[in-house]
Nucleic acid binder design. Structure first.
Lengths: 218, 218
DNA sequence: TTTTTATCGATAAAATTTTATCAAATCATA
DNA sequence: TATGATTTGATAAAATTTTATCGATAAAAA
C-alpha cells in the first residue's frame, strides 16, 4: 500500500489529515469545481493555510498555480495514490460480534483499499455463516488461515479479554499490522505495526474540548 | 465532565494517552502490584519515561517516591477523576443501523462516563424498538428530544450523506459536542466541539507504518 | 548506620510541528 | 499591454512536544 518513496519524513499528523483532504476535495469536485486554493481548504477544514500547502506539497506531483490554486482532480489522484487507495490490500477480521459485524458491513473500507477476506469467531453459531458477505471461520484457524491467505493486516474486534490472544494468533500467522478496536493494551514486538482505535481516548479529547468551550463562554 | 481547573494547558496528546495509562494501571492493580515506576510504564507502553512522568504530573495529586515510583491506586483514582469517569454524562446516538447498534451495545461507554439515553433513526422498522436497551426515536425528533433531555453530546453513526443534517439537528437542539463516526466532513460553528472518528485516517496511519516497517527490514 | 541504587522532579536541550512573512508568479481586468 | 489582486512556495520564526541530563531523595542492602 502507498508509495515507498513517500514513507519517510511524513508526519503522522500529516498522514492523518490526508483522508480529510480527500473527502473534502471529492465534495468540491462533485460540486463542479475544478481548482481550489489552500486558503479555501484551510478555512473550511479549520486549518492553517500554510499547513495545508505543506501537507499538499508532500503528496502532490503538480504544483499549485498562483491566483488559481490546485487542480482538484490532480490532488485527488495524488492523495489516492499516496494513501494506497488505488490498490487493494486484504485483511482479516477477528470477532464477528456486534462491532465486527458493523466493520464487516462497512462498505467504505473498499474505498480505502482494504478488503476483508475472512472473519473469525469462537461462537459455533457464527462459524460457517457469513456476516455481510464475509465468511466466518473458527478462531482456532486464525494463524493457519492468515498464513494461507498471505494476509498482512488483522483487525481485532473482540472483547478486551480475548484481544491479546487474537493478536498473538494473527502475528504467529504472519500478520504485520494490527488494527485494534478492543480497548486493551496489546503487547507486541516492535516489528508489528499497531494502531489502537482508542474510543476512550477520543471521548476524552472530546470531553475536554467540550469542557473548555463551556468554561470559556461564561 | 472532568475538572475545570485542569482543562487548560493540557495537550491533546497527553489527554489522549490517559486512557491507555488507566487501562495499563488497572491491569497492574489486578495483578496485585501496588506501586509502579515511570520507567516501567514507559517500557511497556513504548513511551519515554520523562514523558510519562510529565503526563502523570498533570493529573496526579500525590507525588511519586524515589526508588518506589507511584501508588497505582492513587494514579487510577486521579486519572478517573481527570477524565470525568467518576460522573456520568448523557448522550444521544443518531443512527441505529450496524454501527449505531454496535455502539449502543458497547457497554464500555458506561465505564467512560457516557450514558446513551436515546437513539434516532429514519427507518420506521426501528422506531419504537430498542437496540441494546436504548429506545429508538424518529430522526425528526432529534432537536426536540435533545432539548428536552438536556443532552450535550451527540454521537453520529449514520451514512455520510445524512451526517451533516444529523449534526445540524443535534446542534439546534442544544448539543455542544459531536462525536462523528460518519466519514464526512461536518460544517459546524466553532462553539461546538467536534471529534471525528476518522477510520480512514487511522487506517492510513497504520498502512504507512506497515509500509515503513516492511521497507526498513529489507 | 552507612552505602548503594533506583527513581523522581526540575531544568535544559533537541526535535517536531505549526504559523508568519514575503518575493515571485500568474491570472484577470482595464 | 500594463496593472492589480491573489496565491504559491520558500524561508524564517514561534510554539509545542518530546527527550536528555542531573541533583535530590528515599528505600534497600551492606
Amino acid at each position: 500500500m502507498g508509495n515507498n518513496k513517500e514513507i519517510a519524513n511524513v508526519s503522522k499528523a500529516t498522514i492523518g489529515r490526508m483522508p480529510a483532504y480527500l473527502r473534502y476535495l471529492k465534495e468540491k469536485e462533485l460540486a463542479g469545481e475544478r481548482t481550489i486554493s489552500s486558503t479555501a481548504i484551510a478555512e473550511d477544514l479549520r486549518l492553517n493555510a500554510v499547513q495545508v500547502r505543506k501537507d499538499l506539497a508532500v503528496i502532490s506531483t503538480v504544483a499549485g498555480k498562483p491566483k488559481l490554486g490546485f487542480e482538484i482532480a490532480d490532488l485527488i489522484a495524488d492523495i489516492n495514490r499516496f494513501l494506497g487507495y488505488d490498490n487493494v490490500t486484504d485483511a482479516v477480521l477477528v470477532g464477528a460480534g456486534g462491532l465486527g459485524r458493523a466493520l464487516a458491513g462497512y462498505g467504505g473500507f473498499r474505498n480505502y483499499g482494504l478488503n476483508i477476506v475472512a472473519a473469525f469467531d469462537k461462537d459455533p453459531d457464527l462459524i460457517g455463516k457469513k456476516i455481510n458477505g464475509v465468511p466466518v471461520f473458527d478462531a482456532g484457524e486464525i494463524a493457519h488461515m492468515v498464513r494461507r491467505l498471505n494476509v498482512l493486516i488483522g483487525i481485532i474486534a473482540v472483547p478486551k479479554a480475548a484481544a491479546q490472544q487474537a493478536a498473538d494468533a494473527l502475528v504467529s500467522g504472519g500478520a504485520r499490522a494490527i488494527w485494534n478496536f478492543a480497548s486493551a493494551h496489546l503487547n507486541l514486538p516492535d516489528s508489528i505495526a499497531v494502531k489502537n482505535e482508542d474510543m476512550a481516548a477520543s471521548l476524552a479529547i472530546l470531553s475536554k474540548r467540550l469542557a473548555e468551550i463551556l468554561y470559556n463562554e461564561k
